[in-house]
Amino acid sequence: MTADWTHGQTIVNDVRLHYVEAGDPADPTVVLVHGFPEFWYSWRNQLPALAEAGYHVVAPDMRGYNRSEKPHGVAAYRITELSADVADLCREFDAPVHLVGHDWGGGVVWDVAARTPEVVETLTVMNAPHPARFEEVLRSSADQRKRSWYMLFFQLPWLPERVVTALNCRPIDRMLREGTVTPGAFTEEDVARYREAFQRPGAATSAINYYRSVFREGAKDRIPFVSAATAEADVDVPTLLLWGEQDAALALELTEGLERWVPDLEVVRLPDASHWVQFDAPERVTEELLGFIGAHR
């Protein structure tokens, strides 16, 4: 963590987002989008490495998280709103940008690339399934449905917030530290930072509303993904999918068959990494990122 980074905030899509910025603004921009239950700090290893490699790096707190604004209501967390936030942020920092997302951030950047490809130079997704493939696998795989049980639990009112924040956010601690396969991937200081961010007023409800919105608003927001029989693609930018194979929540088969929707696709599977791939294998992830975006610089 040696980068000379700064904190800032901006209004995008009528919502105030906090972000951390590193590197020279004159250099090509990389936007890093975190997942659940995270915030900008999830990119603490990649921020300095990318800046030192000659990139301008921006890592926002997504709406509802940490220091960003927390709109009320489930509808405020529809994928169309989240996608518009990131697309506007890319425009503010001289789009097209190299766009990177993990987990929920990965779901959002898939959507950004499909709806607003003009803001994306390259797309990198980490352990977040392409939405059309996820629907396929969820319908056909009892194993994936079992892995996704928590999504149904998150549909309940108020109880999920109570559970995940119980005992000083002990469930968040377990999710992070027991979910990784590399000893010490999350330090005591790291986990304390995640707890602090998740315990900010409104943060737990906002984060869980991401999942509630999928069930309540998702049908309205679905992109008309093209069928496998057509030659057209819904994500037509150079794309890298990085996938930790030890993911407890997402089956490995989600990485297969994506060429129907993403023709310019490279898939890199990391057998010794979990869902928290950038923590289990930070140096490898940075290496893959630099190689991929450097090839399209």
Score class of each variant (00 low, 15 high):
Ile11Arg: 02
His34Lys: 03
Glu266Gly: 02
Phe198Pro: 14
Leu289Arg: 14
Leu240His: 03
His102Asp: 06
Glu196Thr: 05
Val285Ala: 10
Val58Met: 15
Pro48Gln: 09
Pro131Met: 05
Asn209Val: 04
Leu250Glu: 08
Trp243Lys: 09
Ala273Ser: 11
Gly107Ile: 01
Ala3Gly: 12
Phe93Lys: 02
Thr255His: 11
Arg16Ser: 03
Asp4Gln: 03
Glu266Arg: 01
Met151His: 00
Phe93Met: 08
Glu81Met: 05
Gly184Glu: 10
Pro60Val: 06
Val74Ile: 06
Pro160Glu: 07
Ser227Phe: 09
His102Tyr: 11
Leu32Gly: 01
Thr187Met: 14
Ala203Tyr: 08
His130Leu: 02
Met1His: 09
Glu118His: 08
Val15Gly: 04
Ala248Cys: 14
Lys220Gln: 15
Leu89Lys: 10
Tyr194His: 15
Ile293Glu: 10
Trp5Asp: 14
Ala273Pro: 08
Val164Asp: 03
Asn45Thr: 10
Arg63Tyr: 10
Val164Phe: 06
Ala192Gln: 13
Ala248Gln: 13
Asp111Gln: 15
Val262Cys: 14
Cys169Ala: 15
Arg174Ile: 14
Ala113Asp: 09
Asp85Asn: 05
Thr10Met: 10
Glu118Cys: 11
Arg260Asp: 12
Ala248Thr: 13
Ala142Glu: 12
Cys169His: 05
Arg200Met: 15
Leu270Lys: 03
Phe93Ile: 12
Thr180Arg: 01
Asp24Arg: 00
Ala51Pro: 08
